[in-house]
Structure formats: C-alpha cells, structure tokens
Simulated assay, not measured.
Amino acid sequence: MLTTEGAIATDVIAEKGTVKSAAYERFRQALFDGRLRPGQFVSQRDLVALLGLSIGALRELLPRLQFEGLLKVMPQRGIQITQIDLPMIRQAFQIRAAFEREAVLHAVRKLDDAALDAQEALHRSIMEEVRTKPDQALFERGQQVDDGFHNLLIAGTQNDLLIQAYGVNSIRIRLIKLDRVTLSAAVLPSAFADHLAIISAIRSRNPHEAMDAMDRHMMNARERALEL
C-alpha cells in the first residue's frame, strides 16, 4: 500500500511523463506542419518560443530527440533539425523494410480475412475516386489509408519494442515524403497497387509471396524518394 508521500511521488512522475510526451508531440507536429524544416538551424530560445515550452522542458527533451536522430545539438552553432539527404533516405527505408518484413510475416499467420477485405475495399475506393475526381482532400484521405495499412501490420506484431522503433523511424519517413514524395494522381495508383499485391499475398498465406510483395513496395517507395 502506498504512503501519502509515495502516492505524491508517483503522481509527480506520471505528470512529468505526460509533460515530456506533450513536448515531444509539439516538436513532431512542428516538423510535420513545416514550422521546423529539415536542415534548419535554431537556438534553444527559438524552440522555446516555437513550441511553447519552458527552457527546462526543452532541455529534458533534447537528449531524446538527438538520440532518435531528429536533430543535432552543435556547440557554437545551435541546434540543427535532421537533414533530408541520400544517406538518411537509404537508412530510413532500410530500417523500415526490416520492420515491415517482420510485420508482413506475422500478418500471414495472424491477420484475418475480414481485416484484409476491409483494407482492400478502402484502397479500391480511393483508387476509383482518383480516376474520377482527384483533389487535395482525396490525397489526404489516401495518405491516411496508406498510413493506416502499414500501422495495422506493425501493430499486429504486438511487439512493443518494434512498434516504438517503427514510430520513431516513421517520423523520418514522413519528413522524406513531405520533402520529396507526396501522394498524387501519378503516385497514388502505383503505391496502392503495391498494397493490393501485399494484401493478396497475405490472403494466400504464403510467407514468401508476402515478403516479396512487401520488398517490392519498399523498393518502389525508396526509389521514388531517391530519384528526386
């Protein structure tokens, strides 16, 4: 049974963890909405103002962001947001491919046909709309379907360490997409055709076909990013 002092300490730790999570989410959103740009140099004062954090909260956040490769703290120069360059793209997609292979193998064994049917229907609906009335709102929904498909596979592993590492790398992948490859009338049909091939291979319960289909998808996505 917790003493009063113990209960207070537990509450303080929980609150501190919540504050750290909120600070991390503010940084992530600033990356995604363009307030922080890849390669940009900023000061701690800039980040405090931009993210609405105290200097103490920022200093607690910086080691995590540096460890995850989302920024570099550079003496005499400030803080540099991670750059989008060829080595970063190759490394991010290599890590992603390893996670996705494990996820698709698990899906072959565990993901039920109802979930596969729902994903196929979502993909085909978006593809049909692209042919008839493409607009920005549709591509945003398409991106949600794209992310949802991969997140479904990753979550299905029920491996907390893999899910956490995938989440960090997905920030890099999102930045690459924002910088170089967004879904469009030219890109979406090809990407979704890859997804449908993966869904078909999972439904066949053939691990080799499923992994080959995922590998092709990862290679195509990487090449789209590298060619620009």
Rank of each mutant, 00 (worst) to 15 (best):
D194H: 15
R26L: 05
D146H: 06
A185H: 15
L111C: 12
K177R: 09
A92K: 03
G56L: 08
L138P: 10
G52Y: 02
P134W: 06
Q94F: 06
A7W: 01
A118Q: 15
P38G: 00
L53D: 01
A197G: 09
S125V: 12
Q80A: 00
G167S: 03
V73I: 15
D46Y: 02
L70D: 07
A155T: 02
L70K: 05
V12Y: 00
I198W: 09
I198M: 13
H195M: 12
D112C: 12
I126Y: 15
Q40H: 02
L153R: 04
E227A: 10
K177V: 06
G78N: 04
E25F: 02
V130W: 15
A225N: 09
Y24A: 03
A97C: 06
Q164I: 07
A165L: 08
E5S: 00
L31Q: 04
L50A: 02
H150W: 00
I13R: 12
R35P: 07
Q164Y: 13
M214I: 03
M127S: 15
K177W: 08
Q44P: 11
F41Q: 12
D46S: 01
S184H: 11
I202C: 07
Q136Y: 10
M219D: 14
L183S: 07
A107E: 09
A186F: 13
R224N: 09
A97M: 07
I173F: 02
E227T: 15
H123T: 15
E102L: 06
A121G: 12
R77A: 02
I163E: 01
A97V: 06
A155Y: 03
Y24K: 08
G156S: 05
I95D: 06
V145E: 10
S170P: 05
D215I: 07
A14R: 02
P87W: 01
A186Q: 14
R90A: 01
D179W: 06
K133R: 15
F149V: 14
A213C: 13
I79M: 10
T82E: 14
A225V: 02
H150G: 00
D212Y: 11
Q40S: 00
A114H: 11
L58G: 05
M219Y: 13
A121I: 14
E100H: 04
G17T: 01
I81H: 03
M214F: 01
F27T: 06
A57F: 02
D215M: 09
V181T: 07
D135Q: 07
R124K: 15
Q44M: 04
A49P: 10
H217E: 11
I79N: 11
A107V: 04
Q91I: 02
R64K: 10
P207V: 00
A191K: 09
A103V: 03
L47M: 13
A115N: 14
D215F: 04
S184G: 11
R77I: 11
L122K: 15
R64I: 09
M127T: 15
I126D: 15
V48I: 04
E25K: 04
K72V: 13
A98Y: 05
A191P: 07
V73N: 14
R109K: 11
D194M: 12
R101V: 03
G148R: 07
I8F: 00
S204K: 13
I89W: 03
L105A: 00
N206R: 13
L162A: 01
L178Q: 12
L162K: 01
D33Y: 10
L152C: 11
L2T: 02
F192P: 08
L47V: 06
S21R: 08
